[in-house]
Design a protein around this nucleic acid. Structure first.
Lengths: 188, 188
DNA sequence: CGATTCTTTGAAAACAGTCAATCTGTGTGG
DNA sequence: CCACACAGATTGACTGTTTTCAAAGAATCG
């Protein structure tokens, strides 16, 4: 559980004495919500095991997946967290999942007290930022087939782990199109 | 020039005594490059006046605009900056533009010495991050017409300021499609 | 004013989406 | 443990949207 967290974030034991008390372990069953549209998100969530998805439901009732979060990544809704506004997203578990939750004020305290923690977090933020820039690039530059190929190249592990219709939603194409593309690609 | 920078970032005069020496003013003519593909980006650039675009050129020679930066926003390539790698982007001026440049090490020094500066930067980063999340959402959820409407709603000022073919590139559609959509929308 | 670049328009082709039917696999309850 | 139900995946035929290519108009800049 929290061992995973520890393993990933290399800090001294005394640092951990500060971190541990503000951490809450949460287990999610497949399909279970971590956040529902309309609620305000107040945490930072570190995924120790499993896989989460963050998605929006549009006027027509269609789901659009903004993000997948697997082990060793963070999940949540920064927008809701920072602005104290109701979230427009849902977050739920694609697999049985375990997360560490840290309340926002505790989190800020950790960033202030522990420079190593702060650096760690900044590093993650920067990588996330770069990742979203690349996703924008892919979304505006590539056609459906290229988007699929780009995805399996960038996240080879995820492609088999995520249900196809969710992958389609993430890529911004229909499940039917994705299915046809997969066939087409397989033939080559 | 730097007055604009001052006006936007509210700090004491003694703080400014620290900031001013590490700032370089740079004027760019329309069309002039701030960064070219292959170069390593080593600065943080604050736009005082004008408008920049960051774009990538794909294998077919087509441009894809990742970002516009207008007054009071930052520009640059974080990926190149943080990883010390050659940039895959070009940045150039859409209008005559004035930017303040701060070298990365100076910038980090400012963040450390001046908490107010650090907060200011973090705030910008967070807002940029949220903006890119929303752009991803739009890119995967909307059709061409909706993308256009979403843009002029989100950035009403920019729509008239940016050449159409660049707006098309930013939205991930062709100039022809954008032209037709505009007509169609105007009729309603 | 002339040249270049940008924008618009039209027609055809390529692409992706929709709808409906079938197939597959998984899990649940009898 | 089997059979059934259900959700997800695939396939086909069709529709609609977007791109492509080519040409003609506008706008801009030297």
């Amino acid at each position: 559980m929290i061992e995973v967290f520890k393993k990933y974030l290399h800090l001294s034991e005394t640092d951990w004495d500060i971190i541990a008390p503000v951490c809450t372990m949460k287990k999610l069953r497949k399909q279970q919500y971590l956040l529902q549209e309309g609620d305000v998100w107040r945490y930072h969530a570190f995924v120790c095991k499993g896989c989460l998805r963050r998605y929006r439901i549009d006027d027509k009732g269609d789901e659009h997946i903004i993000q997948f979060s697997i082990e060793n990544w963070w999940a949540g809704d920064r927008e809701s967290l920072l602005n104290n506004t109701p979230s427009k997203y849902n977050i739920d578990a694609i697999e049985d999942t375990e997360v560490v939750l840290i309340r926002n004020d505790d989190f800020n305290m950790l960033c202030q007290k522990l420079p190593a923690f702060n650096d760690f977090i900044n590093n993650i933020l920067n990588r996330s930022f770069n990742a979203s820039q690349q996703r924008i690039d892919a979304a505006i530059s590539l056609n459906a087939e290229e988007k699929y190929l780009h995805f399996i190249e960038t996240f080879p592990h995820l492609a088999n782990r995520v249900p196809r219709h969710m992958l389609a939603s993430y890529l911004g194409i229909t499940p039917e199109t994705l299915s046809r593309i997969k066939n087409q690609v397989a033939k080559k």
